[in-house]
């Protein structure tokens, strides 16, 4: 393939991936309410966005769930990865396949499985007079669970690379097991932990299917709010919000990516 052809192909794929995103951005500035007609440039959807209680509440839920589920999945997943990396080969691959189920299984199956669990649990608890129904908490549990494999898969390679004698050296130099872990092991596997966290946050933010099945009556996230608006037509405020979120993330990630690599020193 000639260089020109390669670039053209790359370009076409990029257009394919980003065309919908550009479309949504343009629509967010569309004066007209319908997405079919261009009614002139306007910022009114951005204005109205900040007056819409439902959208802001869903945004709040979405961000809170993404943050909490990413933090908890990172804690749980990192400890799981540490435990799994110490297992014998057979047990290790068994545990990995269990943890990987939520990632490999169909989202719809995971979603309905959760729904069946939570509804049965609700019935069971009602029997004891405890009120339990699906909502924020169940969405959080669902998100933590499907984030878990992403954290484990990000941390595991770092743990495998970790030179165990570095840990032993820390003990040898007088550190207790806890000190050795937090001062030596954790900083070393940190890149994996961080990428697991970011991945979790992204997956959680973008999830629709599992939330759809476990949200119950309350706890709408942006995804489920959009889905419920399908019939009436999507409010253009949504486009405005997505554009803001996308650009914010784009700028942050760009900054992180453009930051010169290496030479990361910690002086204390």
């Amino acid at each position: 393939m000639s260089k020109w052809l390669k670039r053209f192909y790359l370009f076409v794929i990029m257009v394919f991936l980003y065309a919908p995103i550009v479309t949504l951005m343009i629509l967010s500035f569309n004066e007209s309410r319908t997405s079919v007609k261009w009614g002139g440039f306007s910022l009114k959807w951005y204005q109205q966005l900040f007056e819409s209680r439902t959208i802001l509440a869903a945004l709040g839920n979405t961000l809170l769930i993404a943050l909490l589920s990413a933090v908890l999945a990172t804690l749980l997943g990192t400890s799981a990865a540490i435990a799994i990396s110490h297992m014998k080969k057979r047990k290790q691959s068994f545990c990995m396949s269990i943890v990987n189920i939520p990632m490999l299984n169909a989202e719809i199956v995971t979603g309905i499985a959760f729904m069946l669990l939570f509804i049965t649990l609700g019935d069971l608890l009602a029997f004891f007079g405890i009120h339990f129904e699906m909502g924020f908490g169940t969405v959080l549990i669902g998100h933590i669970t499907f984030n878990l494999p992403y954290v484990v898969l990000s941390v595991m390679p770092k743990l495998k690379q970790f030179n165990l004698s570095m840990y032993e050296a820390a003990l040898d130099l007088g550190a207790g097991e806890g000190q050795a872990f937090f001062r030596i092991v954790l900083p070393d596997i940190m890149p994996g932990v961080l990428s697991g966290f970011l991945l979790s946050f992204t997956m959680s933010l973008d999830d629709f299917v599992i939330t759809h099945f476990v949200k119950g009556l309350g706890a709408d996230t942006l995804s489920t709010l959009i889905y419920s608006e399908l019939r009436k037509g999507i409010k253009p405020e949504m486009y405005a919000l997505s554009t803001i979120m996308f650009l914010a993330v784009f700028l942050v990630l760009l900054a992180v990516n453009l930051k010169p690599q290496g030479g990361v020193k910690n002086t204390n």
Binding site: P20, V36, M203, L222, Y239
Partner: peptide, 28 residues
């Protein structure tokens, strides 16, 4: 560089439903 992963993961920050719905506008 990690740039490539960046390019392919980035669209995920635009809501999945909206991203797909945008094709309605494009393909209608």
């Amino acid at each position: 560089s990690g740039f490539i992963i960046f390019l392919f993961v980035l669209p995920m920050w635009m809501n999945f439903l909206l991203r797909t719905l945008a094709w309605v506008v494009l393909l209608d």
